[in-house]
């Protein structure tokens, strides 16, 4: 007898409004260079709670890389707090908010939501951005919904 295939879980990235706004603001501020950062959260919770803007050591409109010393500090800090990177985000400043081949090749956090923000439309100015989220596992990209939750208080 064949076993039934496991149901495909539809994943959703849930982000609070404050964090969403902060990521968008970061991307707009750094335009035309790519902005990057993470939102950490308790390990295994899938709950993105602590936004950390990172410096793009590449300082480039077509590439981003966390500075290696900052990267070590970030992971040590998350380790100490039993956190993991729930969201890893960066911006595309001239192309759509879809992972590039480089993004896919270098995606090394199978549990993370990879968020892409495109600032190609309005650059540093006010105006909507594309804000999309993906899972990237073993070179496979799966887009997921983004649910923005209004902040309490």
């Amino acid at each position: 007898m064949r076993e039934a295939a496991a149901p495909t879980l539809v994943r959703v990235l849930r982000l609070d409004r404050t964090t969403y706004d902060a990521i968008v603001a970061h991307a707009k501020r750094d335009h035309p260079d790519e902005a990057c950062g993470i939102v950490a959260g308790p390990e295994g919770s899938d709950h993105a709670t602590r936004h950390v803007e990172m410096v793009n050591a590449a300082g480039s409109p077509t590439f981003y890389e966390f500075d290696s010393t900052d990267l070590l500090r970030l992971y040590q800090e998350m380790d100490a707090k039993d956190e993991e990177p729930v969201v890893i985000y960066h911006s595309h400043t001239a192309t759509e908010a879809y992972p590039s081949r480089t993004d896919i090749g270098l995606a090394n956090e199978p549990n993370a939501h990879y968020v892409l923000v495109s600032t190609r439309e309005h650059g540093n100015s006010e105006g909507p951005v594309e804000f999309r989220s993906y899972r990237i596992v073993d070179g496979n990209v799966t887009e997921e919904d983004v649910a923005i939750e209004e902040s309490r208080g």
Binding site: I38, F63, E65, F66, S68, L72, Y75, S100, T102, L106
Partner: peptide, 10 residues
């Protein structure tokens, strides 16, 4: 010793 993959992309 700590090993960390770069967080990088294009």
């Amino acid at each position: 010793v700590v090993i960390l993959p770069a967080v990088a992309g294009g």
